[in-house]
Design a protein around this nucleic acid. Sequence first.
DNA 1: CCTGTCTTGAGGTACGTGCCTCATGAGCTA
DNA 2: TAGCTCATGAGGCACGTACCTCAAGACAGG
Lengths: 341, 341
Amino acid sequence: MQKRATVHDVARQAGVSLATVDRVLNGRTGVRPATAEKVEEAIRVLDFRRDLSASLLARARDLRVVFLIPDGKNEFMANLTAAIARKSRNVKAERLTLETRHIRPLDAEALAHALNALEPKSCDCAVIVATEDQAVHRAVDAATRRGIAVMTLVSDLPGSARKLFIGIDNVAAGRTAASLLGRFCQKGKIGIIAGSMGLRDHRERLEGFTALLRKEFPALEILGPAEGHDERSETEHLAADLLADHPDLSGIYNLGAGNPGLLAALEKSGRAGQVRVIAHELTEATRSGLRSGAIDVVLDQNPDGEIRAAIAAARALALGQGGDYHADPIEIGIFLRDNLR
Amino acid sequence: MQKRATVHDVARQAGVSLATVDRVLNGRTGVRPATAEKVEEAIRVLDFRRDLSASLLARARDLRVVFLIPDGKNEFMANLTAAIARKSRNVKAERLTLETRHIRPLDAEALAHALNALEPKSCDCAVIVATEDQAVHRAVDAATRRGIAVMTLVSDLPGSARKLFIGIDNVAAGRTAASLLGRFCQKGKIGIIAGSMGLRDHRERLEGFTALLRKEFPALEILGPAEGHDERSETEHLAADLLADHPDLSGIYNLGAGNPGLLAALEKSGRAGQVRVIAHELTEATRSGLRSGAIDVVLDQNPDGEIRAAIAAARALALGQGGDYHADPIEIGIFLRDNLR
DNA sequence: CCTGTCTTGAGGTACGTGCCTCATGAGCTA
DNA sequence: TAGCTCATGAGGCACGTACCTCAAGACAGG
């Protein structure tokens, strides 16, 4: 078995000193491009990889990962925060520090401001739930230039300098919902409730859902989407109207939040368990809906898995060779009453 | 923020020397029980945790994890092996070495022999796909006594000294299959095909499936289980007979392997796409079945996730304080054509 | 008392990298 | 040529743990 190459080997191979290798590896100034190229060539030849253990040990400080998570009553975001706190305990022994900062939901300015406030001295990697906005876009690029690796979580910011997106394929999630609901319902109408068409993930789910349902189950009539703004009472009204106006309603797909409202409407209509319902994210509300039979299927993002992936990526990105990291994709969790965890 | 306690702090707190702390931490001989207890008390008081980075760095050798995987034509096991190889590249930089050794399938003696051959000098942790057998049981216990942490993968060995089981809840998987198939099929007969009732995971799936189907969907009639011994041709015959004998067959649950045979039978009968089919494990065969519509749902164990969990556990178990490690549970992956990865 | 065994202390080196200082030399400008 | 900047080399300390040697003390049995 081949022994791993060390910085010493790289220095020898490149014909330079340890100090120069160190300068190149850690992006310090004072190296001629030609010399840097020699070092990089040696790294390639030897397939050198920085030893993570030694690297973390030698740094005085831990690897710091800062999560910028929307605040508020959104239970899914609270689950994310809880998942971070859980992981935080386990990674203490691995020289990792996780920090969560809460941002006002949908406040792009606040998010950009928080990003700009991060200093590379106290933050190696930022993980944000992105809002699609120019100010955020600029803040991501600026942070990247300062040497902070930025990753997007749940909601992506394509085109920016973010190193990685961690989240599910929302178009596929929509298709999956349609595929299940189509098999569940032979005929009748399917009502769609969304949070807001201003949200990228909601748009993508809707797109996947309607495209597949139209193509594969043309017998089913699509109603909506109605926008409940992820709000309990508003969602309840929408669902109540759907149920009242359409006695032949056979399914509901709620691709946003506001599930407590949906459940209340189902309960009051007396048709819970008769109408097939698919919702998103395992929460207190959706779990109890699954148990009671009011909800048939919940599609979930698996916050723990996402946090785990973010941490793994942070380790690789902050200390690794950079570009070539490829994360395991986050799978869409599908939960029935019978495989609730 | 509190600075992490080091071995020096432990020594001071316990009123002993560094050497003694080292002896206790690494299980060396020559420490009186009373002294060891003082050290352990200090560890508890300070909440000391061995620094993984430094620990791995100081050891001359890497942390070695050996996987004992059944050989043969089983595509799922091949996927496991491939997942190990994939991970192996990524963990090189983290002072981890993964090794796969192949064992003749269902050969308990061979498995026990391989376990007994492992030396603690060259193996910190063994991961086995357990066969339920006394010899294996004894070999697991013996390896544990030699200082090798043993974990079971996919198939458990309850009652042995194995530190952890990594795999899905097979009873829940069976329930999930029943829950879906019940919603898909309004009436008619459901055929069950198993590999072998001698396999623990197959028994558990069957148990979960039949219990839930009887309770929640009493209108559906259960046929079987028939045993196809995870074999292509045998499974094909069973499926062909089911289809021929029961024109009102509305669903099939294959809880074992042998899916190529099942697909062939469906194809020849001309009823692919009309009979609802649920199978296990994403493989070449089941993927193509999902794409063609012959299979509706595949329940999957997620080999990559299992290997990831095994590695995380190995790190924690081989170097950690031991007992208090708790792994994330492996989720049952549910795949339709529309969320195939 | 002596001899042997067991327990404990003291101190060192090593692992691979990060980060620091200081010296040296090359190349430039005035 | 003197004075300057920049590129590079040389070397050392530090991080926290593993593992080694050697010596000293405790305590036993004879």
